[in-house]
Design a protein around this nucleic acid. Structure first.
Length: 678
RNA sequence: GCCGAGGUAGCUCAGCUGGUUAGAGCGCAGGAUUCAUAAUCCUGAGGUCGGCGGUUCAAGCCCGCCUCUCGGUACCA
């Protein structure tokens, strides 16, 4: 869309069960803020929307664990997140949250509209119900024994011990997390968004009309659409969330993925009574800045919701980034493997721009990238300090030395080198602009730095400190041009390094520059007095970096210690219960990989009783040929189960450590197959 | 297994619809310079463009097979 009147920029809502870290920043907030600042400098009408996502089961569980209310949890993290964003220089027009009254209304109305238009499917299904607590149980609210690995702490949606996805009804010995009672199965009704119905539209809209989207975004959408879309439940049996606003939906709330993106709308509503202009006027465009984990929601699910509603615009582009790793490992909130924004802001006072610079210059735009403290230091010392800060400093110091801080006259520019250098300013500005227009932030910030390089080169080549002895008039021209480059730099820096740009403009004693002034050589008029220069960036010493590395090392040590701690013992069982299990020594006669699977091996095992087929999920750890002839322990009276079309008759016993490594439970020496293990 | 994204100099990345000796930044080596936070400027070394095969007058770019990384999905009795 070339002729839009206003731009609505949304940023992924951070989930309010933890603070914000550098991964969030590099993926979403730094580029979104740069882009918003850039548009504002161009005088465009733009809104930058953000807020905390405060519903969902993980928050209720965290609350339960800490013995506080979900509201307490989200208040805490919303507070931390909001403050750290503000201190970091995020220019949100509104930073809201999904527990506001406006949001409840908006989400509720949105649901009602779709409901009344018949855009939902209604389905009844079996679900666990806690009779004591008088409520249906979300998957995460049920624990039980994993039917696969026997782990007692499996959740209703997944066993974290073996990683299997489960249905709550698969669990053995299910227990309600809320009351500890045994839940009963009851019929419950839910509403589904029929994504399949919107498939033809999505195909056209994304695959045909938006081929310009980033390869990672387009590719993932295509992948989803090609696999065939399924209806998705939009409600859950829970009490934390936006209540489903229809008759007979007591105890049901909107599923968090349904209410969260509506948060963008409610936040806009809170900001301005003209919110509809931004969301519905065809001359407005909408951009979603997100991380790759959110591509499906923002490109397929949310657009389907908006399309079904009928009156909203769809996103013009979704410039999603990949992930940022930290020192070679995945960033993880639960493992505390992260650089937390609120901690950075305390430990690196007034150095927001350094982090903004590093995260933008090394943003995971096309693939996952790695953040290392060594790179952070190098980029600060070799680029921000040495190239940018140094150029500004030398230009200003010379001006004070020769002209007492007053801008000398440009004079007649006859020198080709001068003309060329001046022309280069505009070339660079245009490159920055073109890169930003295409959401290529890494490229844009590099071009911005090239303006400082141009300045350094201009000074080095024209050598005013030599000419001052022989040609004073010429030096005036040189210094004027150097200062004009500095002034241009102060403006061009603004979207990327807003704190330093402001500092530099204060030093230059200028203000109110916008994008249009860029590329000109009259930003500073003759005789204009500049202030004393201060250093824009400080060197970061090895000790500072070492401190951060030590901190991460400590995290690693703590995690390792935690992983060595054995799982707590399960509840006692009776001897009779134990004796129900019939475990035998068996010999593996043959083994082959099950076609089209990653983990499964099909084994023929001589159990002494018979020769039977067992399918086992061990293919990642053992080659079929290596295990033939081995003796293993096998649970022979486990009910048979079909896996990938093969009936598996029993289970090979394995020991698994915290890292997921598997080993067989084998007899200490050769023994007859069929021998009983007990 | 299937789908998607990637694999280009020591590191981080560009390479437009295939077209002359494959580029940038950082790092490294040598030189110049001293206005500047020992910063800057110039020059240079360094690449079988993941591997093999094919199409073409011509392939980093197109096709096939293989391989590694990341993500999604199926799968762990």
């Amino acid at each position: 869309m070339d002729n839009y009147k206003r731009t609505l920029i949304t940023t992924a809502l951070p989930y309010a069960n933890g603070p914000v870290h550098i991964g969030h920043l590099a993926g979403v907030y730094v580029p979104a803020d740069i882009y918003a600042r850039y548009l504002r400098m161009k005088g465009e009408n733009v809104l930058l929307i953000g807020g905390s996502d405060e519903h969902g089961v993980p928050i209720t569980l965290k609350a339960k664990n800490e013995g506080v209310t979900p509201q307490d949890i989200v208040d805490r993290y919303h507070g931390i997140i909001k403050k750290s964003f503000a201190d970091f220089g995020m220019t949100f027009d509104v930073y809201s949250r999904t527990t506001t009254e406006t949001h409840y209304e908006t989400a509720s109305d949105f649901f009602k509209t779709l409901y009344e238009k018949g855009e939902f499917l209604e389905k009844e299904s079996d679900q666990y119900y806690d009779d004591e607590a008088k409520q249906f149980l979300a998957d995460r609210y049920i624990t039980g024994t994993c039917p696969h690995c026997g782990n007692d702490g499996a959740y209703g949606d997944q066993c974290e011990s073996c990683g299997t996805s489960l249905n709550a009804t698969d669990l053995k010995n299910p227990v309600s997390v809320i009351s500890g009672s045994v839940p009963v199965i009851k019929k419950t009704k839910h509403w589904y968004l029929p994504l399949d119905k919107h498939e033809p539209f999505l195909k056209q809209w994304i695959l045909e009309d938006h081929k310009e989207w980033k390869a990672n975004v387009y590719g993932q959408c295509k992948s989803w659409i090609d696999q065939g879309l399924q209806p998705r439940a939009v409600s859950r049996d829970l009490d934390w969330g936006v209540p489903v606003p229809v008759e007979g939906a007591d105890g049901k709330v909107l599923y968090v993925w349904f209410d969260a993106p509506i948060g963008y709308i409610s936040a806009t509503k809170e900001l301005t009574p003209e919110w509809e202009k931004y969301w519905k006027d065809p001359e407005s465009r909408m951009l979603h800045f997100i991380g790759k984990d959110n591509i499906v929601f923002h490109c397929i699910v949310f657009p389907s919701m908006l399309k079904a509603e009928g009156s909203f615009n769809l996103p013009e582009n979704v410039p999603a980034n990949e992930f940022l790793n930290l020192e070679g490992d995945k960033i993880s909130t639960s493992r505390n493997w992260a650089v937390w924004l609120h901690e950075y802001l305390e430990e690196f006072k007034d150095q927001q721009d350094v982090l903004r610079y590093v995260l933008c210059a090394n943003a995971p735009e096309t693939k996952d990238n790695d953040f290392t403290w060594k790179d952070f230091q190098a980029r600060n010392n070799n680029e921000l300090v040495a190239i940018l800060g140094n150029f500004v400093n030398r230009a200003m110091i010379l001006t004070h030395k020769y002209y007492d801080g007053k801008v000398p006259a440009l004079g007649n520019v006859v020198d080709d080198f001068d003309k060329e250098s001046i022309a280069q300013i505009e070339v660079i500005v245009n490159k920055v602009q073109a890169s930003l227009d295409n959401f290529r932030f890494r490229e844009a910030i590099k071009e911005m730095m090239n303006l400082a390089r141009l300045g350094n080169k201009y000074l080095a080549d024209s050598e005013p400190w030599k000419l001052i002895k022989t040609d004073e008039e010429r030096v005036k021209t040189i210094m004027n041009i150097s200062l004009q480059i500095t002034a241009n730099l102060s403006v061009l820096m603004q979207p990327f390094l807003p704190f330093s740009a402001a500092k530099l403009q204060a030093m230059l004693n200028i203000s109110g520059q916008n994008w249009e002034t860029l590329g000109k050589t009259d930003l500073l008029s003759e005789g204009h007095e500049i202030n004393k220069p201060e250093l824009l960036f400080a060197k970061i010493e090895d000790e500072t970096i070492q401190k951060q590395l030590d901190k991460l090392e400590a995290t690693k040590t703590a995690n390792l210690a935690a992983s060595k701690t054995a799982e707590p013992a399960k509840e006692n069982i009776s001897f009779d219960e134990f004796m129900k299990m019939d475990i035998r020594v068996g010999t593996i006669l043959s083994a082959e990989k099950v076609a089209k699977t990653k983990k499964l091996l099909k084994l023929e095992v001589d159990t002494g009783i018979d020769i039977r087929t067992v399918v086992s999920g061990i293919a990642e750890f053992f080659n079929p040929e290596d295990i033939i002839g081995k003796q293993v322990s096998i649970l022979v009276n486990l009910a048979p189960r079909k896996i990938k079309g093969i009936e598996s008759q029993g289970m090979i016993l394995m020991a698994e450590d915290a890292t997921g490594e598997l080993v067989f439970i084998q007899p200490g020496s050769e023994i007859k197959p069929g021998s009983i293990v007990r």
